[in-house]
Design a protein around this nucleic acid. Sequence first.
DNA 1: AATGAATGAGCGTTCATTCAT
DNA 2: TATGAATGAACGCTCATTCAT
Lengths: 197, 197, 197, 197
Amino acid sequence: MPKIVDHEQYRKELLGKCFDLFAQKGYGSITMREIAQNLGVSTGTLYHYFPSKESLFEHLVEEICEQDLSAALGELGGKKGISEAMTALGRYLEKNEDYFIKWTYIWVGFCQHQDSKEQSNNVYMRANQRYQQAACDFLGIRDRELATFVLSFIDGLLLGKLQGNKMINFPEQCALLGKMLTAYLQQQESEQLKIRN
Amino acid sequence: MPKIVDHEQYRKELLGKCFDLFAQKGYGSITMREIAQNLGVSTGTLYHYFPSKESLFEHLVEEICEQDLSAALGELGGKKGISEAMTALGRYLEKNEDYFIKWTYIWVGFCQHQDSKEQSNNVYMRANQRYQQAACDFLGIRDRELATFVLSFIDGLLLGKLQGNKMINFPEQCALLGKMLTAYLQQQESEQLKIRN
Amino acid sequence: MPKIVDHEQYRKELLGKCFDLFAQKGYGSITMREIAQNLGVSTGTLYHYFPSKESLFEHLVEEICEQDLSAALGELGGKKGISEAMTALGRYLEKNEDYFIKWTYIWVGFCQHQDSKEQSNNVYMRANQRYQQAACDFLGIRDRELATFVLSFIDGLLLGKLQGNKMINFPEQCALLGKMLTAYLQQQESEQLKIRN
Amino acid sequence: MPKIVDHEQYRKELLGKCFDLFAQKGYGSITMREIAQNLGVSTGTLYHYFPSKESLFEHLVEEICEQDLSAALGELGGKKGISEAMTALGRYLEKNEDYFIKWTYIWVGFCQHQDSKEQSNNVYMRANQRYQQAACDFLGIRDRELATFVLSFIDGLLLGKLQGNKMINFPEQCALLGKMLTAYLQQQESEQLKIRN
DNA sequence: AATGAATGAGCGTTCATTCAT
DNA sequence: TATGAATGAACGCTCATTCAT
């Protein structure tokens, strides 16, 4: 069934091009006409591939949820120590700042949209768990709480940047996180040694 | 003699009641009719107090920008150590979770809206600086970078909660932050001692 | 009953100030707020003196219908020959061009307004008759048809000016009318003489 | 393939049907809903063909500006003497009285509308010149002033009719104009002869 | 008498969506 | 499959009008 493959692939292509638009304007402020125009298709075509604006938006979020992580892991995977990992993370965030900020816009818009439908969507549940696992792997830790801490901090940096806070410097802040993690883990270790002795 | 109304005060009253609406739906998805209905006034009245939807939104953001910090400082001020401060912060966040999540929605929506107008708004510049100062005071530190770190982390926690991440536990995470800060600061101190000797 | 006198007089004062507004914007495009603002009163006051926008407009037309002619007659009355009369008329039109154009705007707007209510208003019937009588007196003629001719021509000049036709020159055109009238009347006379003889 | 529609032609069709509406109510008093309803389309469709009410109005004026003169010339052209021409003109005006009155309403409304935008529109400049040329051709004269005279008079007749002046009789008045023109031209001629001798 | 806050129907316009082609 | 003309409900906003003061 080659036709379905084409159909599916074209959908993904369209979704990819939507990303910026939804990020810049938000679900409620963008129009199907604008989207169609930017994608270079007619509104009819848009509706041929997606039954509604809402559906389009939801597909967009799902699509980028799936892509996002694998790209990051590919680039960041295989670091040895926390310090090295944090340096890499800082650079990575800095390089992809624009993308992540857009990502955050879409993400928040999506949550708002889901909330207003009073649907407990598990799209982000699943995404969050994958992120947490990835964080554990990346840092070589097993403490879920700590992974949550790190992820929250990164989210916070992105939120800050999104808000135009120019004082945030990704490498700097990641380095700081690295130092704090190291200091904290060392302390934990030495405390555990004391207890055992 | 017209009906006696304190124009300014009534404006603020209306703004206060708008908060939830903008948080739940977002700027682009809420309508002036909905707002008017929820405030118990006519659309005409709404436009009597605000020249446009945009203006209403902007006034809302400014209004709550001014309020929320003073409230937080009032409740959190006067803590002695980092550990104690973090316990208080954790409780405070937990208690006001709803409010802060809404705040975050509005904040992000506002940034998106301002970005799309390509206006570098200094409302959040100012707000950010005030937050940073407050963070320094609260933690008894002087390092701006560290203050940014803490604020970002808190933002990140809120963003996580907003996204429905139920693994985030404010007191727990704040306690963790407290420990990390303490460990980090102790290490810094001992390193400085070494250097001096 | 001095109060009623005041009331009536204030009404007329307000009406006088409305003239320009209705002329410039037209009945359908001007708002009661604008009018009130321009008159320096509140909308409430406006409604205290006139029960509705429509009524205000109708009173305005009636009011200026009554004024108009007496002013003109005062200034133009007592000319001897057609030629002299036409020179005076040309100057008079030129001097009051603005006023007459506004007058025409209001007049046309009023007719349109009345037509759409399908009311055969006799306000302008009466006015027209007065104009015709005045024209006869002014020119020293008795022929109603000829008076209609002259009045129509003047109306046409005003309409032309209103349309921005800068080729229209009131004194010139009036002089031309004078010559034509003279030529015509002379011919008529000589023809009548022939017939009698 | 979309529905096959000749965009330009359909626009003109819609414009043609608008004529009466704008004439009867005036620009400021007619609504887009009314127009759409009368044209038998939806408001959306109206806006598909015209970007705004203002644009619709302006296109209407331009459209009928182009049409009406050619129609008149077609029917009136090729008359020999002034007297004959005037008889034809009188009949023509009488026959198309309704149309011309509506035309006048629209014309005046358009001028008012343009004035209020403080734009010196050259639509009527051009139209006026064409009318003048047509008048010269029609009457076999070269004197521009005289052409202006005739056109103004016709405008005035229309204005009079528009105002409900039932005393105006087009053929009668045109005949009168014919006589006056003839008398005037004869006199001019004889005067010139005298001067030469 | 005079004010201007309040109303809600209605304005010009836009929107997501449909459907004939 | 793809188009864009068509729809009409709903948008942001304005209006004539009312009425408590």
